[in-house]
C-alpha cells in the first residue's frame, strides 16, 4: 500500500482544516471497510487519511419524537441497528443497514461511509432516500444540508466539495401511518452485493385507508441510487392495493437505467426493479398499517 499520513481529528474544525489543506488528496476514514481496501488495491490514492471516529459530533446516535433520528457519520452499523431494533423505530432503515456485510463488517462499517462510498448498489442509500434523510455536511464554509437523493453524483462520486465531509445523517420522525422497507435481490441469501435493490415508503390516512405520501427508490440499476418520483406520485391518493403497488413497480421499471455486468443483465435488473418495488411496498404497507412497530 502506498504511504500516507494519518490524523485522528478530535474536532470538526481540525478535520475540515486538514481536509481543506490537502485539496482533494485527503480522505475521511470512518469504518474503513471500503477505504482501506481501495487504498490497498491502488483504486484510490491519498496523502492523508483523516479519521473522524474521535470527533464527538460524528458519534452521535440520538432519537427524538420531534426531530427524528440523528446518526453520526462514524457510528458503526451494529450500534445503529441495535439502537433502532431496541427502540422499535425505523425498521426499514434497520433492514437495509443490517444487510451490509457480516458481523465483522457491521462492527466497523457506517451508514455515512456507505453513502460517501457512493456505490450504485449501496444497500442503505435507497432506504435513506425513502426516509427523506438529510445529509449534514460540514466544510470550510460552514454547515449545509443536502437531501440523500442528491448526495451521490456518479459511481464513487459525491456532492462533497474539497474540504467538506459528511458529519451526520438526519431522518425526520416516522409520522402516524408511515411504513418503509428495503429489499434487494442477490443470488445468495447473505453476504452479497445487490443485483438490484428497492426502497419504498408510504403513509396511510383515513378510513378506508388512502396513501397520502409515498417514495420509491432503486439501487444498482443506474450510476447512482435513484429516487423514482413518478412511482411515488402514482401512489398518492390511491388505496393501498396490489394493483397500485404493481403500477408503481411498472413506473420504476421504466425509470431504471441498468447495465449488463458480472452480477446480472440489464434485462434482469429492469425486471427486478418492478418486482422489488412491489415487494418493498407490500412490507412498507404492513408496517404502516401496524403502526410502525413491525
Amino acid at each position: 500500500m502506498r504511504a500516507f499520513e494519518y490524523l485522528s481529528a478530535s474536532s470538526v474544525r481540525e478535520a475540515v482544516e486538514a481536509l481543506a489543506a490537502r485539496n482533494g488528496r485527503a480522505r475521511v476514514l470512518a469504518g474503513g471497510t471500503d477505504l482501506i481496501v481501495q487504498l490497498r488495491e491502488g483504486r484510490r490514492e491519498v496523502d492523508l487519511v483523516v479519521d473522524i471516529k474521535a470527533i464527538p459530533e460524528a458519534n452521535r446516535l440520538e432519537f427524538d419524537l420531534q426531530t427524528g433520528l440523528l446518526v453520526g457519520a462514524a457510528v458503526p452499523c451494529y450500534r445503529m441497528v441495535g439502537f433502532l431494533n431496541a427502540a422499535g423505530i425505523y425498521p426499514g432503515l434497520a433492514a437495509a443497514a443490517g444487510l451490509v456485510g457480516g458481523t465483522q463488517i457491521q462492527g466497523r462499517a457506517t451508514l455515512g461511509g456507505n453513502l460517501c462510498n457512493a456505490s450504485p448498489a449501496a444497500d442503505t442509500i435507497p432506504a435513506l432516500i425513502v426516509h427523506r434523510a438529510a445529509c449534514l455536511i460540514t466544510g470550510p464554509q460552514g454547515e449545509r444540508e443536502l437531501p440523500a437523493e442528491d448526495f451521490c453524483t456518479g459511481p464513487g462520486q459525491t456532492a462533497l466539495q474539497p474540504g467538506e465531509f459528511l458529519l451526520a445523517l438526519r431522518l425526520p420522525p416516522e409520522p402516524e401511518g408511515f411504513g418503509a422497507h428495503y429489499v434487494r435481490f442477490t443470488p445468495r441469501n447473505e453476504m452479497d452485493i445487490a443485483v438490484a435493490g428497492a426502497g419504498a415508503s408510504l403513509r396511510l390516512a383515513g378510513s378506508p385507508a388512502r396513501i397520502i405520501e409515498a417514495r420509491v427508490a432503486l439501487g444498482a440499476v443506474a450510476p447512482t441510487p435513484l429516487l423514482v418520483r413518478e412511482a411515488g406520485a402514482s401512489l398518492v391518493g390511491k388505496a393501498p392495493t396490489l394493483e397500485a403497488f404493481e403500477e408503481a413497480g411498472r413506473l420504476a421499471r421504466e425509470a431504471a437505467r441498468p447495465i449488463d455486468d458480472m452480477r446480472g443483465t440489464a434485462a434482469q435488473r429492469r425486471h427486478l426493479s418492478g418486482v422489488l418495488v412491489r415487494r418493498a411496498l407490500e412490507t412498507a404497507y404492513q408496517r404502516a398499517s401496524r403502526g410502525g412497530d413491525a
Binding site: Y6, S8, L29, G32, V37, T103, R108
Partner: peptide
C-alpha cells in the same frame, strides 16, 4: 476483538 467488537484486522489500520 477491538474493544470487544469483532472486526477484520485487515480492515483496521494499526494506528487506529
Amino acid at each position: 476483538l477491538l474493544d470487544g467488537v469483532l472486526v477484520n484486522s485487515c480492515l483496521v489500520l494499526a494506528v487506529e
